[in-house]
Design a protein around this nucleic acid. Structure first.
Lengths: 120, 120
DNA sequence: GCAATTGGTAGCACAGAGGTTACCAATTGT
DNA sequence: ACAATTGGTAACCTCTGTGCTACCAATTGC
């Protein structure tokens, strides 16, 4: 399972938010959530596997903590999509505009988007 | 379905990445993906519902485009978790440290994390 | 007018995610 | 030594997500 799928589950997001406040044990997390301890345990395994959480053994206890660096891929992906990259300077297409728009009716590969995209 | 769950699916992420290059029609997207057109159509509906994509009707065609602002919630959430907030200035706890650590054995609410957390 | 293109939806099948209870191992404190 | 605490795992059930094919509506171009 990848990081994005891991973040797709609301329970796991809740666990991550809780762990942002500091480490916790499984019983603690289970007490703060409406689902059973085994369910929490499985969610934690997913989070560990995806690198979002780390566990530290301490006798019979196991302390889970948030690994913030695990979110880096998500941050990078979102930023990549958010960034507006004008691959071709606007004015360079001015002459070709009409021609490109009309050529190749049977397969329109990608009508180049306008640079003035929404950014809000 | 919320934005995080929408991003959980690899096909939908692929669609978003494709749309980052400019608008496209369903048939275009279907041609570039190994799954059927109805499947693409349903994914697009999810993306529209979650505000990540918008559609523009143009005759019998429908042009889908990326709505970058739809990613804002994700960006905010990730940033909130990534940020390290020292709610209490380190030295303020110096006197209480041992006492806090030992009090209340039957219920450990949240062993306050050390400020020097990993940031990588 | 008519064939072709575009695209949504319905109906169905299947895999997998996520919940539960039951059970077991290991550690701890009295 | 022994009871209690902690936590992982197995077995099971159910439901939802995602794929498919088939079908229909609407627009378009000849």
């Amino acid at each position: 399972m990848d990081v994005f799928e891991a973040l797709g589950d609301p329970v796991r997001r809740s666990l991550l938010q809780r762990l942002a406040d500091g480490p916790a044990r499984v019983v603690d997390l289970a007490a703060e959530h409406p689902i059973s301890r085994p369910a929490i345990s499985r969610h934690l395994r997913v989070l560990v596997d995806t690198g979002l959480v780390a566990a530290e053994e301490r006798g019979r206890e196991r302390h889970y903590r948030l690994v913030r660096s695990g979110l880096a891929p998500v941050q990078a992906w979102v930023e990549a999509l958010t960034r507006i990259d004008p691959p071709i300077p606007e004015h360079a297409l001015d002459g070709l505009d009409l021609e490109v728009r009309r050529a190749g009716r049977e397969r329109r590969p990608a009508p180049r988007q306008h640079t003035h995209e929404e950014t809000a």
